[in-house]
Design a protein around this nucleic acid. Structure first.
Length: 421
DNA sequence: TCTGGGGTCCTAGGACCC
DNA sequence: TCTGGGGTCCTAGGACCC
């Protein structure tokens, strides 16, 4: 009970040095590293998504923002270079970047594709460098070896290290220690603190809390009374009390896997929607198999053109990561979710309660046996995709998602497709 | 057609049991 | 009889993150 607080009582004896690294305009940074001719130009990525995912500082200077529709960029900023995302390269550069950090620190938490935390505590004597020098070395090596610019924060906690790495950007290095915390928090709006989003900011504003310093100055009892437990942890962290641990586990464990697709134009075509779902299921299953995970639960959602979600959950009597089985579940659930007169923009599938595949036991209803047959096929498919590239092999129902499916098809068609399974 | 895609964690409240 | 008072487990949904 109250684990975070208990832990920190022990940990607060020892002041930590937490390192946080944040890529500068990371996706664009990688594009520039791949093709140095782009350096100094206004560049954005996200062409395939229709909105700006990342933008170079030159593009930002023109007034482009994250999330801006690509058509607007084309129209208003014709000189800007627009690139599609190259996620394979981003992942490669990401792990090379983290490898550099691991040269110095053992405990590295890969937080996202362009961010990591590391615990540098106690490394000064063995590396014969100050913490600042270690950070400078890492920055230099990432810059020289990978051609990437990063910003670094050093602080006693993760939350403060995030404040620090954001302080100077790009190419910054900022140190917060227990003595100068307030200098930073006074100038940080509360909504900029990691973990405090728009809803909580509005609530805190209503209590007169505008800056991180205002929050910091509240009594812990007040925080407990007004907010839930994660905010108590943030309060501790802002006080320099190490509470959120570094988690160096490799990113191979998932508690859920999701695949969604939005489409254009919006539609209420049953066959089209089902084929989109089907493709989502296949891709989610491919990922699940890649990590040897099997879901015990699956959920589906439809999003209407007005952003209303229709959710639906199914518990699997026999856990499976074979798309054929999950699609047959979808067939039933879809009838509950779909309404004739409504126009949809997105379909989504989430696999929940993932367990390692070796732990799935045989059941009495033959579901596992049936899944076993498919397992064979999928082994081959996974192999082919590994060799020749992704998304080569699809199920019949997914073909509808690949062909630009004609509108208003009768649902009998669909049943035939699914029967084919 | 301003608003994509992939995650994690926490809480409130219902169901069920004694 | 003016319907306590716990547990536990599960789910839906909120909030937040990059």
């Amino acid at each position: 009970m109250d684990n975070g607080v208990q832990k920190n009582k022990i940990n607060s004896q020892k002041i930590k040095t937490i390192f946080h690294m944040d890529g500068d305009a990371f996706f664009v940074g990688v594009e520039v590293a791949k093709n140095p001719k782009l350096k100094g130009l206004p560049v954005v990525t996200g062409e395939e998504r229709g909105i700006v995912s990342a933008l170079s500082y030159e593009a930002k200077a023109l007034g482009i923002t994250r999330g801006m529709p690509i058509f607007r960029v084309k129209k208003d900023f014709p000189k800007v270079l627009i690139l599609p995302g190259d996620y394979k390269s981003y992942a490669r550069y990401s792990s090379m970047m983290f490898d550099i950090v691991k040269r110095y620190a053992d405990d590295v938490e890969e937080y996202s594709i362009d961010e990591c935390f590391a615990d540098l505590t106690g490394l000064e004597p063995s590396l014969k460098m100050t913490y600042k020098q270690i950070a400078e070395r890492i920055k230099l090596e990432v810059n020289e070896e990978l051609g990437l610019s990063i910003s670094i924060g050093l602080a006693p906690t993760k939350v403060l290290a995030k404040v620090a790495s954001k302080w100077i950007k790009p190419n910054g290095l900022t140190i917060i220690n227990r003595e100068n915390i307030s200098d930073f928090l006074i100038k940080t709006p509360i909504e900029k603190i990691w973990g405090i989003g728009p809803r909580t900011s509005v609530l805190l504003n209503s209590y007169g809390i505008k800056t991180a310093q205002d929050f910091y100055l509240k009594k812990i009892e007040w925080i407990r009374e007004k907010l839930s437990s994660p905010y108590e942890v943030i309060w501790q962290e802002l006080h320099g009390i190490y509470t959120m641990e570094i988690d160096p586990k490799p990113r191979t464990e998932y508690s859920s896997i999701q695949r969604t697709r939005s489409f254009h134009p919006f539609t209420n075509d049953k066959v089209f929607l089902l084929s989109q779902f089907s493709k989502n299921i296949e891709e989610a299953c491919t990922k699940a198999r890649h990590y040897s995970l099997i879901p015990k639960k699956i959920s589906f959602f439809l999003k209407t053109k007005d952003f209303v979600y229709i959710n639906c959950v199914a518990t699997l009597t026999s856990p499976s990561n074979a798309p054929e089985i999950l699609i047959s579940i979808l067939q039933n659930k879809f009838k509950e979710m779909y309404k004739k007169g409504i126009i949809y923009r997105t379909t989504g599938v989430t696999l929940h309660d993932l367990v390692p595949s070796h732990s799935s036991q045989a059941d009495l209803f033959g579901g596992t046996e049936r899944a076993g047959k498919f397992e064979h096929i999928h082994k081959h498919i996974d192999f082919i995709e590994k060799k020749y590239g992704k998304h080569l092999v699809y199920l019949a129902s997914t073909l509808n998602a690949l062909k630009n499916k004609k509108k208003g098809t009768d649902s009998d068609d669909l049943d035939r497709d699914l029967l084919f399974l």
